[in-house]
């Protein structure tokens, strides 16, 4: 009984950690701009593919350059960091193309939902043209697990080592980000812009630079998440990030828009709730996430850990 409970907890934490990571990417952008970046799911896919290529993976038969690959592969952890950086840069590009022009004109934030969605459509379809739709698995020899067993037993419950690693990296990223936001000058500036852009501007903070920083960070988080998931379950095709994007959206609101601890709590809660769904009812699993969201919104519109604010769109 205890074992089963522990297993459920582990299962929930493993998927919840990923949800939290996705939601965190949304949160960063939302806190400074008050909009949701719908290209986040596509950046998630992009990160996975970048890591694959950097590790020396070859493009499959249906891609644009069949059989092409880098002459030498990097070790997983290095590829992971570079891919995160690459996704961050692409996120910056998305900001320049889909967000900045709207901001300069003072257009409604609503428009950014659509432009970022368009950017996501472009990214995913470019990925498909380049890489084809087939699934890819990372070259295992150079994988993250070198030397570790595939599965770890914790008090009778089983978890795949890669999932545990994923959870650890997610936690590290989350803790690092929170500390950075709390402690460092850059983080404080970012939070100041998130609180009140006008006042921050008066204090001499370059809010434009902070927006760009938020995009790079959120893109890097997406790239990190996509790569880790890719390591765990391979890359099932260019659309795979989109599903995580939708779930992340629910988590984002569940925890409270713009709240970092909220995104984490929301992710873990969602993961646990899903792990608790019995097999007989698992067809309804996806509705559960949104039903919880629905209930939370009605009882506590600002989310579990969000601030109560009146906002307009």
């Amino acid at each position: 009984m205890i074992e089963a409970l522990l297993q459920t907890l582990l299962n929930g934490a493993a998927s919840g950690g990923v949800y939290a990571l996705v939601a965190l990417g949304y949160t960063l952008v939302f806190s400074v701009l008050g909009v949701i970046n719908f290209a986040q799911g596509a950046l998630f896919s992009l990160g996975g593919y970048l890591t694959y290529l950097l590790m020396g993976g070859r493009i499959g038969v249906n891609g644009a350059l069949p059989g092409w690959g880098l002459p030498a592969g990097l070790p997983f952890w290095l590829a992971l960091l570079l891919a995160a950086a690459g996704s961050g840069l692409v996120a910056l590009l998305v900001e320049r193309v889909a967000f900045a022009p709207l901001r300069r004109r003072g257009a409604e934030p609503l428009l950014a939902l659509i432009t970022s969605l368009g950017a996501g459509v472009v990214l995913v379809n470019l990925l498909q043209i380049l890489m084809g739709a087939e699934g890819y698995a990372f070259p295992q020899e150079s994988g993250a697990l070198a030397g570790l067993p595939e599965v770890l037993m914790i008090g009778g419950a089983r978890i795949r080592t890669i999932q545990l690693l994923l959870l650890l990296v997610c936690s590290a990223a989350v803790v690092g980000l929170s500390l950075w936001l709390e402690r460092s000058r850059g983080g404080q500036a970012l939070r100041a812009v998130a609180e009140d852009a006008t006042t921050a501007q008066l204090l001499g903070i370059n809010s434009d630079a902070m927006v760009r920083l938020a995009f790079v960070l959120s893109g890097a988080l997406a790239g990190l998440g996509g790569s880790l998931i890719g390591m765990s379950v391979s890359l099932p095709g260019p659309y795979f990030g989109i599903g995580y994007g939708l779930k992340g959206l629910a988590v984002l609101v569940l925890g409270g828009l713009g709240s970092v601890p909220g995104a984490i709590a929301g992710g873990l809660l969602m993961g646990l709730a899903e792990a608790l769904v019995p097999a007989e009812a698992s067809g309804w699993r996806d509705a559960l996430a949104f039903a919880i969201l629905f209930a939370v919104l009605l009882l506590r519109p600002s989310g579990l850990l969000g601030r109560r604010t009146v906002d307009k769109v």
Binding site: I229, S234, F240, A279
Partner: peptide, 19 residues
């Protein structure tokens, strides 16, 4: 046991440990 998954699922930790 019958475990229902979704098309978009790729992480099966929960249904597998259940089964």
């Amino acid at each position: 046991t019958v475990q229902r998954t979704q098309l978009a699922d790729n992480d099966f930790q929960t249904p597998i440990t259940n089964a």
